[in-house]
C-alpha cells in the first residue's frame, strides 16, 4: 500500500515539474533567451448601419393652362399669338429634396403614379434616381443631398375641380447593402 502511494506521489511530482515546459521554450543556459509567438485574430467591430434620411417636398400644386387659339384678327380672319397648353407651378413647389445622414450610401428613386381618371397626365423628374454617398466625414450642414424637380405633361380636363389630386409621388430609398443582396 505504502509503495503504491509513494509511486503515485512521485508521478504527480514529476508531472508538476514538467508544466513550465509547456509555457515557453526552456532557457537552458545562463543569459539565454526563449521565444513565444504572439497570435491575433481579426474580428470586425459591431458597427450597425443606421439609416437616417430627410425628405422635404414643395406643395406639388400645379396649374394647367389650356391651349389658346390667340386673338381673333377681324382684318385677316385669323387668330394671332396662339399658345400651347402648359403646366406651371410656384417657384420650387415641384421640388423634392433628399438628404442622407446615414452611415452608408443610399439610392433615392422617384416615381409618379397617375390618380384614377388622370392616366393621361404623366410626371417626370429631373432625375429618376440619384446615389447619395454616406454621411461619414460630413457635418449635418453639408450632408449629401439632392434636389429633384417634377414636371407634368398631358392635359387636364376642364371639369377637374380646383386642387384635385391627380397623382402621387413615391420615393424609394434603397440602402447599398440591399442593392448588393
Amino acid at each position: 500500500m505504502k509503495k503504491t502511494i509513494s509511486i503515485l506521489l512521485v508521478l504527480v511530482l514529476a508531472l508538476c515539474a514538467s508544466i513550465p515546459a509547456f509555457a515557453a521554450d526552456t532557457i537552458t543556459t545562463e543569459g539565454g533567451s526563449a521565444t513565444k509567438d504572439v497570435k491575433a485574430t481579426y474580428q470586425p467591430g459591431d458597427t450597425p448601419t443606421i439609416y437616417s434620411v430627410d425628405i422635404t417636398w414643395g406643395s406639388m400644386e400645379f396649374t394647367y393652362t389650356d391651349a389658346s387659339k390667340g386673338t381673333w384678327d377681324p382684318e385677316t380672319h385669323q387668330y394671332k399669338g396662339a399658345t400651347e397648353a402648359t403646366w406651371s407651378c410656384e417657384n420650387d413647389a415641384n421640388k423634392i429634396t433628399v438628404t442622407n445622414h446615414s452611415n452608408t450610401g443610399i439610392v433615392a428613386v422617384l416615381g409618379y403614379t397617375s390618380g384614377e381618371g388622370f392616366s393621361e397626365i404623366n410626371g417626370n423628374f429631373s432625375k429618376d434616381s440619384y446615389t447619395l454617398r454616406s454621411a461619414e466625414g460630413t457635418t449635418r450642414g453639408n450632408a449629401p443631398r439632392h434636389d429633384f424637380y417634377l414636371t407634368l405633361s398631358g392635359s387636364l380636363n376642364e371639369s377637374a375641380l380646383e386642387n384635385t389630386v391627380i397623382g402621387t409621388v413615391t420615393i424609394t430609398i434603397y440602402g447599398f447593402d440591399s442593392l448588393t443582396d
Binding site: T49, D54, T56, W57, S59, E61
Partner: peptide, 17 residues
C-alpha cells in the same frame, strides 16, 4: 425642425432595414 416648404412637407426617418 426641418424647413417646411410652403404648402409642402418635411419628414425625417431613422430606421433599420
Amino acid at each position: 425642425p426641418l424647413t417646411n416648404p410652403d404648402g409642402g412637407g418635411a419628414v425625417s426617418l431613422i430606421y433599420s432595414n
